[in-house]
Amino acid sequence: MAGGGGGQYELNLTPYIDLMSTLIVFLLMTAVWNQIAVLSTDSSSTTASDSPAQPDPNRVTLSVTIMPGYIEMAENQQTKRIPHIEGKVDRSRFAEALKDWKARFPTRNDVILNTENTVTYQMLISTFDELVGNDFPDVGVSTQ
């Protein structure tokens, strides 16, 4: 065949291997192996004392208290208890109760979270997580 190369061609793999090696090193160095995230509480509104606003007497205070055997949900003085299941928060019943709160107080995003001293940190986080997941993102953790 006139003008035909007729030879055997080989793909030059050197740049490809260089690129791959660089990419692998970069990705390994920047890889995030721990999927760490945060649950945030901001106590600035409760600690700022420059111009304390008068509390609204008609405003209902929503609070959740974690006790060793149950969770107590309180609207002012009216309380409701949700017992733990096998030492853990009953998340389904707690979520139902929070949905009920949200239906009755749709504009409220804030809840005060109290804890008894002996409960575990995991229980605090589980309850906090459930509150955030049910549209109560403004959770104030009480240090009392």
Partner: peptide, 21 residues
């Protein structure tokens, strides 16, 4: 809570609890 109290007293009001997602 003991640590949180000190943090708030020292003006660190935004407290983030690290969790595994």
């Amino acid at each position: 809570k003991r640590v949180m109290t000190i943090l708030i007293q020292e003006g660190f009001t935004g407290i983030n609890f690290a969790v595994r997602e």
